[in-house]
Simulated scan of single mutants.
Amino acid sequence: MSDTTITALKNGPLLIKESVKIIDGATGQELPVARLPVALCRCGQSGNKPFCDGMHGKVGFDGTCARQNP
């Protein structure tokens, strides 16, 4: 079994290039993934959550990821 790689794009979404199943935690229903790669919203402003619709650029989202040591 191969690992799935999720890339946090600079000031943008989470990008998943491999096949993935996305489940709505509230309903338990699988969300359709129309094509790859799939981009998941990190800014919280998408009108199509959990998918990215590009709003991060309009709202000036700062998605800086800093490693946190335990």
Rank of each mutant, 00 (worst) to 15 (best):
M1H: 15
M1Y: 14
D3L: 12
D3E: 15
T7S: 08
T7C: 10
T7N: 14
A8H: 12
A8P: 07
A8C: 11
L9G: 08
N11D: 14
G12C: 09
L14Q: 05
I16W: 05
I16L: 05
K17Q: 12
E18K: 13
S19N: 13
S19W: 08
S19M: 08
S19T: 15
I22Y: 02
I22W: 00
I23Y: 02
G25I: 06
G25C: 08
A26Y: 04
Q29M: 06
L31H: 05
L31S: 02
P32K: 14
P32L: 09
A34K: 14
V38E: 01
A39L: 10
C41V: 03
C43L: 04
C43Q: 01
Q45F: 13
S46M: 05
N48S: 10
N48K: 11
K49W: 00
K49E: 02
G54W: 02
M55G: 07
M55P: 03
M55I: 09
H56I: 00
K58S: 10
K58F: 11
K58N: 14
F61P: 03
D62V: 15
D62T: 12
G63L: 05
T64Q: 13
A66K: 12
A66H: 15
Q68G: 10
Q68T: 13
P70K: 12
P70S: 12
